[in-house]
C-alpha cells in the first residue's frame, strides 16, 4: 500500500520545519524590533517574497530607506545563487504544468536541498505532486515562523543584537551538508579562496558577485578535464550524488 503524497511530503519536509521556524522567527523579531511597521507585514513578506537571506537583508535596507534600484540590484546579487539551483532541477520540473510556476517561485536553499537529495521513483507526475507539496509545506513553516517572531518581537523588550548571525550559521550548516552530499571538498575550498580573495581585494559592494564569477571561471576552466564523467548520463538528467 503506497503512502499518501502528503504524508511523504510532510515527513520529507520535517527537518525544514525545525529550521524555518527559528529562522523565520529571527527575521520576524528583527523586523519588529528595527522597524515601525505593523507586525503582520512580516508574514506577508513571507508570502510574497519568500527568501530567507533576502528578507533578513530587506530589514537592513528598509531601516536605511535604500533606493529601490539599489534594492533590486542587491537582491539580484544576493539571490544570484538561485540561478544555479534551477540548473539541477530543469529535468525534474519538466512538464509539471500549473505546478511549475510555484515550484520555481518556492525554490529556496532548503527546498532545493530537499528536492535534490530525496529518492525519486519512475512516476514523474507523482514525484512532481510531492515536490509541490514539499514546497508548499516549507513556505507554510516559513510564514508561521515570520509571523510568530514579529508578533512576539512587538511585545518583547529584547536585545536582539547579534541575531543576524543566524544567517552565517545557516550558511555554515549548508556548507557542511553540501560537503556530505558531494563527498568532495574541492568546491568548498574553491569557494573559500574566492571569497577571501575578493574580501581582501575588492570594495564591499562587489565582493559577493566577483567571488561567484571567480568560481564560475574556475569551474569552466576545469570542465574539459571532467567532461567524460557526465557523458554517459546525457539521457538521464540530474547527476546522482553518491
Amino acid at each position: 500500500m503506497p503512502q499518501h503524497n502528503w504524508l511523504i511530503a510532510l515527513k520529507t519536509s520535517l527537518p525544514v520545519l525545525f529550521g524555518y521556524l527559528p529562522l523565520g522567527a529571527s527575521f520576524g523579531v528583527l523586523f519588529s524590533t528595527q522597524l515601525d511597521y505593523a507586525w503582520w507585514i512580516a508574514p506577508l513578506m513571507g508570502v510574497i517574497i519568500y527568501a530567507g537571506s533576502g528578507q533578513l537583508l530587506a530589514v537592513t535596507l528598509l531601516v536605511t530607506f535604500t533606493g529601490l534600484t539599489q534594492v533590486f540590484i542587491a537582491m539580484l546579487l544576493l539571490n544570484a545563487r538561485h540561478v544555479f539551483y534551477g540548473l539541477s532541477l530543469l529535468e525534474a520540473f519538466k512538464g509539471a504544468g500549473w505546478r511549475k510556476p510555484y515550484l520555481i517561485f518556492g525554490l529556496t536553499d532548503e527546498t532545493y536541498s530537499l528536492l535534490t537529495c530525496r529518492a525519486r521513483s519512475e512516476d514523474k507526475k507523482r514525484e512532481q505532486q510531492i515536490d509541490f507539496l514539499i514546497t508548499l509545506f516549507n513556505q507554510g513553516y516559513w510564514i508561521v515562523g515570520c509571523g510568530l517572531g514579529a508578533w512576539l518581537g512587538r511585545a518583547l523588550t529584547f536585545d536582539a543584537t547579534g541575531i543576524e548571525f543566524a544567517l552565517v550559521a545557516l550558511f555554515i550548516v549548508l556548507c557542511i551538508e553540501q560537503y556530505k552530499a558531494l563527498q568532495s571538498s574541492f568546491p568548498i575550498w574553491l569557494g573559500f579562496a574566492a571569497g577571501l580573495f575578493s574580501l581582501l581585494v575588492f570594495p564591499e559592494s562587489q565582493q559577493l558577485l566577483i567571488a561567484m564569477l571567480l568560481i564560475c571561471v574556475v569551474l569552466f576552466w576545469q570542465y574539459p578535464a571532467n567532461k567524460h564523467r557526465y557523458k554517459n548520463r546525457l539521457a538521464r538528467g540530474p547527476v546522482d550524488e553518491q
Partner: peptide, 20 residues
C-alpha cells in the same frame, strides 16, 4: 549544466561563509 549544477551550490555556500 551538470558540471555546474554539481559543484556550484557548494562553492557558493562557501563564498557566503567566507564573506559574511
Amino acid at each position: 549544466a551538470q558540471h555546474l549544477g554539481r559543484y556550484l551550490p557548494a562553492g557558493i555556500m562557501a563564498v557566503l561563509v567566507a564573506i559574511f
